[in-house]
Nucleic acid binder design. Structure first.
Lengths: 126, 126
DNA sequence: CTGCATCCTAGCAGATACTG
DNA sequence: CAGTATCTGCTAGGATGCAG
């Protein structure tokens, strides 16, 4: 049962991720495109086409797909302006911003260990 | 050029991720299995079979594949004890621990917004 | 026990085209 | 402009077998 673990006696984050719903959420969110979209939305509200421009290399399909997923999980909010042509804007919810903070951490990490990783790779070829 | 952005004038993490090597690192690392392995190794050194037990649902193949990747990028270290049967242990490097800190953040985030996400999903079905 | 290679399949993800 | 659907290729990832 879900609530059992929530009020549970363990503080082990990994153990808790054994919970199937938590793992499902984690799997949804722990993928490249989702994280890059969240990072992009961290700067503020963006429309669909703007997002496409910011998240380099993402396809139309992957963008909509991941946006639906983020909306479904309550991480992003979708507001449609009934104009013509339609204008659809996406913004992070509170939960979304919470996650963005950790994604920021990952980005910073990437740059902190950039050279370290670069040389580790060279060492690895041998 | 890589170093241009490293010493560059922008503080925008997302912009910097436009750099191809940074994106490659990010893509390597921003996947479910890699993050779960790192989280598991956060507790300390583990052998291959122990890891398989901790990272629930991972296959033999995905585990070796991701471990090679982590090793290649200098996030995990592999030490072989030349016994029989062989005993291979994996441990996080400093860079690995750095990343683990942010993964911990993601795990905590998952549990903080667990109920929030649960209800967001119910709202979404309509 | 660990690692690598092989085969094989489901589902991911791109391209395209069509609606509102 | 935004979203959906279809078609298709391709690769991620499981299962298995073998070697060290």
């Amino acid at each position: 049962m879900v609530t059992k673990r929530l009020s549970g006696s363990t503080d082990d984050a990994n153990l808790r991720l054994a919970d199937s719903l938590a793992r499902e959420i984690f799997s949804d969110v722990a993928n490249k495109w989702a994280l890059l979209i969240i990072e992009a939305l961290g700067e503020g509200t963006l429309r669909f086409s703007e997002l496409r421009g910011r998240v380099d290399g993402i396809s139309h399909k992957m963008l909509t797909q991941n946006l639906r997923m983020l909306e479904r999980n309550g991480l992003a909010e979708r507001t449609v302006h009934p104009t013509v042509p339609p204008r659809v804007e996406y913004t992070l919810t509170e939960a979304g911003h919470g996650l963005r903070a950790t994604v920021d951490g990952m980005c910073e990490w990437t740059y902190r260990y950039f050279r370290h990783i670069e040389s580790a790779r060279q060492r690895f070829e041998s």
